[in-house]
Write a protein that binds this DNA or RNA. Structure first.
Lengths: 109, 109
DNA sequence: ACCATGTGCAACTCTGTAGTTGCACACAGC
DNA sequence: GCTGTGTGCAACTACAGAGTTGCACATGGT
C-alpha cells in the first residue's frame, strides 16, 4: 500500500491555496515562487511553504535555473492518487454488495 | 464543475481519523458512533464530529434505527471524487504536452 | 565592485479544528 | 414507573499549520 503517499497527496490537496498554486503551475507550465506569489494574495514565503508540501506529496518538482527555482506539476502522481481512491471506492462497493447479499440470504431462511 | 463538492471530499479525506472511520465502516457495513468510538482512541463526540464532516462531503450516510444512528459508506461519491482527480491529472498532462511541443518548435526556428 | 532580484532560514502571531468534559434528552427493556 | 444505553448540544482546551516579518546569503547584469 502506498498509504503514506496517498495521505500526503490528500493533505496537500485539502488546501485551497495549494490547489490554486497547482492551477497556476498547470497553466504556466513552469514558474518560480516569487512569480506565483504575485498572482496570489499571500507572500512569497507562504507560497514557498505550500510548494514544499506539494513537493513532499510528489505533486510538483523543482529545478534551479540560475538564481531562481522553477516548479512544475507532476501529473503522474495525481493520476496515481486518483487511481488509489478509485480502488478504495471499488473495495467499498464490493464490501457493501457482500453485506447486502448476506442480509438477503438470512432473510430467505 | 463540482468543485465545491470535491473540495469537501478532499478536506474530509485529509484527516487520518476520518479515513480510519471510513475503513471501519467499509469493514462493518454499518455502525453507530458509539460503537465506532470503542475501536478508536477518541471519544464518541469526536467520532460524531468526524462523521458530520464525512456526511457533508457525501462520503457517508446515516439512518435512525431505534435509539441509535447507523452510518454507512457511499462508494459512488468516492468514485466520483476519484474521477474528478483523474480528469484534473489528464488536463495537466495535456497542458504539459502542449508546452513541450511549443518549446521544441521554437528550438527548431 | 556594485546593485537588483531571487532564494533560504528563523521566530513570531493567529485562526481553525481536533478533542475533551459535562449535562440534558430520547428510547428500549424490565 | 424506573434504569441502561445511545444520542444531541454547548463550552472549553490545546495544538497544528497558514501566514507574516526581518534579515542573511546567492546569483546575474552593468
Amino acid at each position: 500500500m502506498t498509504r503514506t503517499l496517498l495521505d500526503a497527496v490528500l493533505v496537500a490537496l485539502a488546501e485551497p491555496t495549494r490547489r490554486q498554486l497547482l492551477d497556476l503551475l498547470a497553466e504556466r507550465g513552469e514558474a518560480s515562487a516569487s512569480t506565483l506569489a504575485q498572482a496570489l494574495p499571500v507572500t512569497r514565503q507562504a507560497v514557498v511553504k505550500h510548494l514544499a508540501v506539494l513537493d513532499d506529496a510528489g505533486l510538483v518538482s523543482s529545478r534551479r535555473a540560475g538564481r531562481e527555482v522553477r516548479y512544475r506539476t507532476r501529473p503522474e502522481r495525481l493520476a496515481a492518487a486518483a487511481r488509489d481512491l478509485s480502488e478504495l471506492a471499488t473495495a467499498w462497493e464490493t464490501r457493501l454488495a457482500t453485506i447486502k447479499r448476506l442480509a438477503e440470504e438470512e432473510e430467505g431462511v
